[in-house]
């Protein structure tokens, strides 16, 4: 059985890193509705936020959702409650990265792609996905 509101520390850390108030979210799902990458996520943005609100730490740290956020800010622009969702996603990534859990292993990247891709794609990805 999941224990809700068990990990208050997690909620506090997320709020600190993101500078957002989790209680602002009323779970309308508009972030999920407009997210260009929601279909690739195992857990969509609004549910990631729900995990945060309920302090479901294991679920939150297990989900791959935040790694698909491209910080395009469509959700932020349309959120009726003024929640900066990409900051919340960054907070989850930050927690992982500070625990030395990155998404990509640079030597593994396809050499041909490395030569072809514009530097700013690589630098952006490294800054978001590596520690």
């Amino acid at each position: 059985m999941n224990k809700i509101l068990a990990d208050k520390d997690l909620t506090r850390r997320i709020e600190e890193i993101s500078d957002q108030k989790l209680s602002d979210c009323y779970q309308c799902g508009r972030c999920t509705a407009g997210c260009p990458f929601a279909e690739f996520m195992d857990v969509p943005p609004n549910q990631v936020i729900r995990f945060m609100q309920l302090g479901l730490k294991e679920d939150l740290l297990k989900t791959q959702g935040p790694w698909f956020c491209a910080a395009c800010l469509v959700c932020q622009a349309r959120c009726p409650r003024g929640v900066d969702i990409p900051r919340l996603m960054e907070a989850v990534r930050t927690i992982h990265l500070r625990a030395k859990e990155g998404l990509i292993d640079v030597p593994e990247i396809d050499k041909e792609f490395l030569l072809d891709a514009p530097p700013l794609a690589l630098i952006s990805a490294f800054s978001k996905f590596t520690y």
């Binding site: 990458f37 790694w67 395009c72 469509v74 891709a117 990805a125």
Partner: peptide, 22 residues
């Protein structure tokens, strides 16, 4: 005004491809 996939092209090329295609 929607996203092309941005730097996801590095980690999730399919995501970038599909959104740019769309």
């Amino acid at each position: 005004v929607e996203c092309c996939g941005s730097y996801l092209v590095v980690t999730s090329p399919d995501a970038a491809l599909e959104s740019s295609y769309k």
